[in-house]
Design a protein around this nucleic acid. Structure first.
Lengths: 205, 205
DNA sequence: CTTCTCTTGTGAATGATTTCACAAGGATTC
DNA sequence: GAATCCTTGTGAAATCATTCACAAGAGAAG
């Protein structure tokens, strides 16, 4: 069950959601593949990892497959999210509507800037990072979004693990070390830009 | 030359830059690997794709390797960047200092909100998206950062390709279709969160 | 100058992922 | 209800990536 297969499931789900709005009832692996930029066999292999949801000769029923994918991805439940770091990136994320739509609800926001502490974002009062434990006692969260400067990221991650966070989406340009049983996803803009730069080196001039 | 190898190079470079500041002259593949969360042999294989930069029995000289990696990744030149979409995500990116440090210089900012057009960010006046061609004639860019809503992303990407952009870093939750010869990197928060959710499904409760 | 220690660079082996090819089996038509 | 048309589901093959194992070679020590 590879990481990349899972990410494709997420893309399939998105495509199915866009389709549903257009009223399509049935979709073939080839069509789904086209929307996502992969191949029919790939789609079928990915789905077959979790069962057989299609009907031969016809394709996949959009709505049921959508439900099934949401279920597989763990999106049929609510996840409570703590946002650590109320800088510009944090601000962008709080405003990102997909989070809530997908069942990720920000319940706690922490920062260490005295200017910000006490102000409200989306109705949530920003608390001091040092009081993480207290904040989690009031509003526990399974997931954290880490949007602090690189230097502060590892300490914040350690603290998050201590208060029981099981998944971290890290936006700081640092590779976090976390114990077994805690999942981390890195969204690393610098790495992305640099790999773009590498690709360009061979395309430009 | 796999995508993942390139991304690791970027991580090695970052580690080397952090080291250099601490005055370390020589680093072994094992040590570098540790900082990046991979293995010695992996580091050596990755580097050997581009030549042999180490000395046996000793390791790699930090500074020269750093220079070499920057070169390989295409970071030893300046890249002009156009930012399309001056929302919250755009704001976060403009303020992100690593961009400039890495040689990516934002020279143009475009949006379609009349409220924003004309205001200045970091000294750059925000122009209207419809006048992209004009903006590019004044300030050409090889790279674009696309931070617009999903619905607008494909059109914006098409326009960017028309005015000569060769690399797009896309932050909208859409898979862009671009012609051969244009590189795209997707930073897809939703996919990331959902794959985190999948991992958690098996870790929590 | 020989020996010992260390770490690179790399072919070979292993493991993972993707692609292929096709049998299985619904739906539709005549 | 047989024949035809489709598209799935899936082993097998091919490709791609990582790990392993070790010869090659640099430096240090005696």
């Amino acid at each position: 069950m590879s990481e990349s297969a899972i990410r494709r499931l997420s893309l399939y789900l998105r495509a199915l959601e866009e389709m549903g709005d257009d009223g399509e009832e049935i979709v073939s692996s080839r069509l789904l593949a086209e929307r996502v930029g992969t191949t029919g066999p790939q789609v079928r292999k990915d789905l077959s990892l979790f069962g057989s949801f299609g009907t031969r000769g016809l394709g996949y029923a959009v709505r049921p497959l959508r439900v099934r994918l949401r279920d597989i991805l763990g999106l049929s439940r609510r996840w409570s999210v703590a946002l650590v770091g109320a800088g510009r990136i944090g601000a962008a994320l709080v405003a990102y509507p997909s989070f809530r739509e997908r069942g990720f609800e920000i319940v706690t926001i922490l920062d260490n800037d005295p200017e910000k502490i006490g102000t409200r974002w989306n109705g949530i009062a920003i608390g001091p990072v040092e009081r993480m434990e207290e904040a989690f006692r009031r509003n526990p969260a399974e997931v954290a979004i880490l949007a602090v400067p690189a230097e502060a990221a590892q300490d914040a991650a350690d603290a998050l693990v201590r208060v029981g966070v099981r998944g971290i989406m890290n936006l700081a340009p640092v590779r976090l070390r976390v114990p077994e049983g805690v999942a981390v996803k890195h969204v690393d803009m610098a790495v992305e830009l640099e790999s773009l730069s590498f690709a360009l080196r061979h395309l430009v001039r």
